[in-house]
Amino acid sequence: MASISLKSISKAWGPVVGVDAVDLDIRDKEFMVFLGPSGCGKTTTMRMIAGLEDPTGGDILIDGEKVNDVDARDRDVAMVFQSYALYPNMTIYENIRFPLRMRGIPRDKHDKMVREAADIVELGDYLDRKPRALSGGQRQRAALARAVVRHPRVFLMDEPLSNLDAKLRLTMRAQLKHIQRRLETTTVYVTHDQIEAMTLADRIAIMNKGKIQQLGTPDEVYNNPANVFVAGFIGSPPMNLIKGDLDNGAFTGASTRVPGIGQGSRKNVILGVRPEDISVAEPGHGHLNSVLYSLEPTGDQTLVSALAGEQMVVAKGSRSFRQTLETPIGFTFDVARCFLFDAASGERI
């Protein structure tokens, strides 16, 4: 197993900066998720750990050893990609066995190692089949077994579930977490899907514009966002963000007034409140008083939306809540669960 340290790691292509002086310590046996939108630097950071990209600044250490100049094949890391990258002319057995052949593992050990890896991902009955005979989820498990088979120090996974449908992603998330806990292998996982990040990670590094915006456990980044970007990126639906001012401790914005939320007065602030921290109230008796904009029953709950100026605000109502669109409605906020951000910097107040 291995710890990973990134010391002011940067990657630039001329004037274009992809990763900007990132510092990060990944603990031994930890499941670390890099989360962020496309182009934020998460995949480039992982590729530098793998040795597939050379940093233009900073150092990468694996178990305390600087590996900047170590070839990718000698870093003892295994990658699982978004595309399964299985050899179509080989059986699943031979696909899983391939890394053992490439690394010169004695042939008399291959069969036992391949079958152990296949059993871990529950593919023991499919070893004689070609990839085209397997489902998408089975192919992804085969790719995972190929990474598992040689017991690397580090797993690197680049959006491995993106090509699967919603039901398969749910199943594979559970399997990935189970396998990682069983093998106790340090894992770096890249995704733009915040549900994957929240369910899989020990810690999440939320990235934007080449920098880590916040690092913490899923609970920490969800319950205590450091800035507007994190607040709006984590959560489904994401946190509501309402522009306004602070007037003697009361937030005032379009159709919105929330007393006792802060101290003093300041212009250009943003109130953040999550949909589950909003209750539907009688019209005229809420912190936000508007008209019903939309109603979305999801089975276990109803997403209720109203407008605060041009900003749509979403609340999670009961599964039985129904009301005609364009009729008056009130929203009451849990003041203890509201956040204030500076509109100019985006930072938490």
Results as ranks from 00 to 15, higher is better:
Ser3His: 13
Ser5Ile: 13
Ser5Cys: 08
Ile9Val: 15
Ser10Asn: 11
Lys11Gly: 06
Ala12Met: 14
Trp13Ala: 09
Val17Tyr: 11
Val17Phe: 10
Val19Lys: 04
Asp23Ile: 12
Asp25Pro: 02
Met32Gln: 10
Met32Val: 08
Pro37Gly: 07
Cys40Asp: 01
Arg47Pro: 04
Ala50Arg: 08
Ile60Lys: 12
Gly64Tyr: 11
Asn68Thr: 08
Asp69Tyr: 11
Asp69His: 15
Asp76Leu: 00
Val77Arg: 08
Val77Met: 04
Ala78Glu: 00
Met79Trp: 04
Met79Lys: 03
Val80His: 05
Gln82Ser: 03
Ser83Lys: 04
Ser83Val: 02
Tyr84His: 05
Tyr84Glu: 01
Tyr84Thr: 03
Tyr87Pro: 09
Arg97Ala: 01
Arg101Met: 00
Met102Arg: 03
Pro106Ile: 00
Pro106Leu: 00
Lys109Gly: 00
Val114Cys: 05
Val121Lys: 05
Gly124Glu: 05
Asp125Thr: 08
Asp125Cys: 04
Tyr126Met: 14
Asp128His: 12
Ala133Ile: 13
Ser135Val: 13
Gly136Phe: 10
Gly137His: 14
Gln140His: 09
Ala145Ile: 07
Ala145Cys: 13
Arg146Ala: 00
Arg146His: 03
Val149Pro: 09
Arg150Trp: 04
Arg153Glu: 04
Arg153Met: 00
Ser162Tyr: 02
Asn163Lys: 06
Asn163Pro: 11
Asp165Glu: 07
Ala166Thr: 12
Arg169Asp: 14
Ala174Glu: 15
Gln175Asp: 15
Gln180Tyr: 13
Gln180Lys: 13
Leu183Lys: 11
Thr186Arg: 07
Val190Asn: 14
Glu196Trp: 00
Ala201Met: 08
Asp202Tyr: 13
Gly210Glu: 02
Gln213Ile: 00
Gln214Ser: 02
Gln214Asp: 04
Leu215His: 02
Thr217Pro: 06
Asp219Trp: 03
Tyr222Arg: 05
Val230Ile: 06
Pro238Phe: 01
Asn240Val: 10
Gly244Trp: 14
Leu246Glu: 07
Asn248Arg: 10
Ala250Ser: 13
Phe251Val: 05
Phe251Asn: 04
Thr252Phe: 15
Ser255Arg: 14
Val258Asp: 04
Pro259His: 02
Pro259Lys: 01
Ile270His: 05
Ile270Gly: 01
Ala281Thr: 12
Glu282Phe: 02
His285Trp: 01
Leu288Gln: 08
Asn289Cys: 08
Tyr293Pro: 07
Tyr293Ile: 06
Glu296Asn: 09
Thr298Ser: 09
Leu307Gln: 13
Gly309Asn: 11
Glu310Asn: 10
Gln311Met: 15
Met312Glu: 15
Ala315Leu: 12
Ala315Glu: 12
Lys316Glu: 13
Lys316Asn: 11
Leu325Pro: 03
Leu325Lys: 12
Pro328Thr: 02
Ile329Tyr: 13
Gly330Asp: 06
Arg337Gln: 08
Ala344Thr: 09
Gly346Glu: 06
Gly346Ser: 05
Glu347Trp: 10
Arg348Tyr: 11
Ile349Ser: 04
